[in-house]
Each structure stands twice: as structure tokens, then as C-alpha cells.
Nucleic acid binder design. Structure first.
Lengths: 161, 161
DNA sequence: TTAAACCTGAGTAATTTACTTGGTTATATA
DNA sequence: TATATAACCAAGTAAATTACTCAGGTTTAA
């Protein structure tokens, strides 16, 4: 479990999706505007998220992304794992550097520590984050910054955003 | 709180130090041999650890490094923080990208999450790790791999574990 | 006095991150 | 059917980070 800004980008984007979960598909362009992440970078991240079935996509006009499951069943750990794809920088990936029977202080210790961090992050869902007051407040301010009126996918088409 | 292999190197090295805590100063060359980390890289890591007073050094022949404090008062979080030196890759370090009053969903969320991870890692000390059976066993095997006889600074030389 | 250790700084290859450019494919609406 | 819109895809790239190497120091104890 690596914790870097890449994972933060993914969690932020997924949180944006969760905040608009009851509305229609969410466009990457919208996430890009609201969260300040480049569109093409988002596309790359969402390719990975889609592979892990954390999101589903709708192509064409009015399309975008949906969460693959309910917000409270998607953990922060899953999202981070989806984009980090464990490059396993251990120097003993099974039977590497260490002599004799795969002995390696480093490996076991770190796997164990990061497993515990993972367990912790697994206990936090996107649903939990959406409930938080501070996040709701920031999300509302973000909505204000754009056009005061928002549109959904179903019936209102005149989206001149 | 970033979790990468760099931090793992630092924790591993500090753990090696903790395992030899009752013996004399521990040489970096010894850590390099046992843990498979390049000597010069260790020197760089230890320069940072020393700056944070997590270790003290003894120069000259027979010299090496000591833990700066007792093993059970040094947390894993401290060690990682010492070498990662928070490069703050946030795009709104105070009042950056976000419009109006420093609003930023990303920043607050991530700081909060990583604070909780930090709190978790802060609850684990080097002393805790040293107590673990699996780590003691690996450490003993590492000692076997080198010369069967080790020497310490003070008096007890014949500790072939 | 000399060797063992720490210390410093510069350089560097490999990797990752964060992004750009330039497309294609699918689909809703006019 | 044309067109706009959005997801999808691939390749390249600049900047940063990681994990080193190298080449010299300085300090201190045997």
C-alpha cells in the first residue's frame, strides 16, 4: 500500500463522483474543473478504475461515469490500490536477494505494516466521506463557483455549461 | 504521510539498529550487508535521521550509530517522516489553486486521512517490532549468515545468537 | 600516523508522476 | 443523416523522486 498524491487524485475524483451519485453520469471534464486535475490524467486514472470495476461509463453526449457500486461499499483502500497497482519494489519478490530460504526482514515487516494501513483505509468508505460536514461544505462551494444552476441527465437537456 | 520504499529502507535500518541496541555502535557497513541497502544510500538516510536526532553517531574506528532514544519511544511514523520530509505536493499550499477562501476538497481530505495513518504508525514503536517473534527469528538468521562470531564494543564478544 | 568510520556534495540512471497531443469510437440530439 | 459530445486509446514528455555511484573530505581511536 503506497500512499502518494496519485492515490489522492483518485480518491478525490471518486469522492466527486460520490457527491454527484444521485444525479446522472458525471463528466470527467466536470471533475477536472472542480478538482483541478487535468482531463487526460483523469482519463488514465479512470481507465484503471474501470478495469477494477469501481466505475462504469456511459459514452456519448450526456454520458460520463457512475460509481460501480454504492458509495458506502467502496473503500478508500480499494481506490488507492486500483491506481497504484503494487509495483512491488521489494528486492526479494519471492526468492530474490536474500540467501537461503527467502529470509527478508524488510519484506515481511513492510508487508505487515502496510497491511495494517490498508485495513485501516479499508474501514473508510466513500459514503463515510460524503457524510462529513466539512466535505459537504466544500462541495457546495465548488458548485457555487460554476454556474448557479446544475442540470441532471434525465429530463433537462438545455445544458449550456 | 507518504508510504514508499524509501521509508521502508529507513524503518528497516532503524530496526536493525534497535536489534543491536544493547551492543556497541552499529556500523552502516553492517546494516548494508545484512539488509542489502547500499552504503552511500544509507549514509544519506542517516544524515536525515541524525538531523531529527533519531540516531547519534560515534566516529572513528569501532564507531557507528546508536538509536537516539530508547527503542520503545521511537515510532515508525517518526522514522518515515524523517526521510520523507513532506514535499507537500498539494496544489494549494495555503492559498494556491483554489478560488476564493482557500477552498480545497482534496487538501483537507488527504491531510485528514494521512493524519490518521500517521496516528496509527505513531502507535507502533521500534520496541514493539523488536518484540515480534518473526522479526527476532529473521534477525537471528541474518546473524548466522555472516561470521559466526560477532564482536561488541564493551565486553561481551561471544554472542553468536 | 593511519585506518576506520562518518560526512559532504555532485552526478546519474531508472522509475514514477502528471500531463500534452492527437487521435478513434459510441451515442444522443438536431 | 449530420454533428456535437463524451468516453476511450496511444504515444510522448518534462519534472520529480528514488536509489544509487563516485570522489573526495573530516574526525577519532588504535
Amino acid at each position: 500500500m503506497r500512499l502518494t498524491t496519485k492515490g489522492r487524485y483518485a480518491v478525490t475524483a471518486m469522492l466527486d463522483l460520490a457527491l454527484h451519485h444521485d444525479q446522472g453520469p458525471t463528466r470527467l471534464a466536470g471533475i477536472s474543473d472542480r478538482q483541478g486535475i487535468s482531463l487526460s490524467y483523469l482519463e488514465q486514472l479512470f481507465a484503471q478504475l474501470r478495469r477494477q470495476e469501481l466505475v462504469t461509463s456511459v459514452r456519448g453526449p450526456g454520458g460520463g461515469y457512475h460509481l460501480g457500486r454504492q458509495p458506502d461499499t467502496i473503500s478508500v483502500a480499494e481506490v488507492i490500490a486500483a491506481v497504484n497497482e503494487d509495483t512491488d519494489t521489494t528486492r526479494c519478490g519471492g526468492a530474490g536477494d536474500c540467501q537461503e530460504g527467502e529470509i527478508c526482514l524488510t519484506h515481511h515487516l513492510w508487508m505487515d505494516l502496510s497491511d495494517q494501513v490498508r485495513a485501516f483505509l479499508q474501514s473508510i468508505s466513500l459514503g463515510d466521506l460524503v457524510e462529513r460536514q466539512d466535505i459537504r461544505r466544500v462541495s457546495m462551494q465548488q458548485a457555487m463557483r460554476n454556474k448557479p444552476m446544475e442540470t441532471t441527465a434525465e429530463q433537462i437537456p438545455a445544458s449550456n455549461l
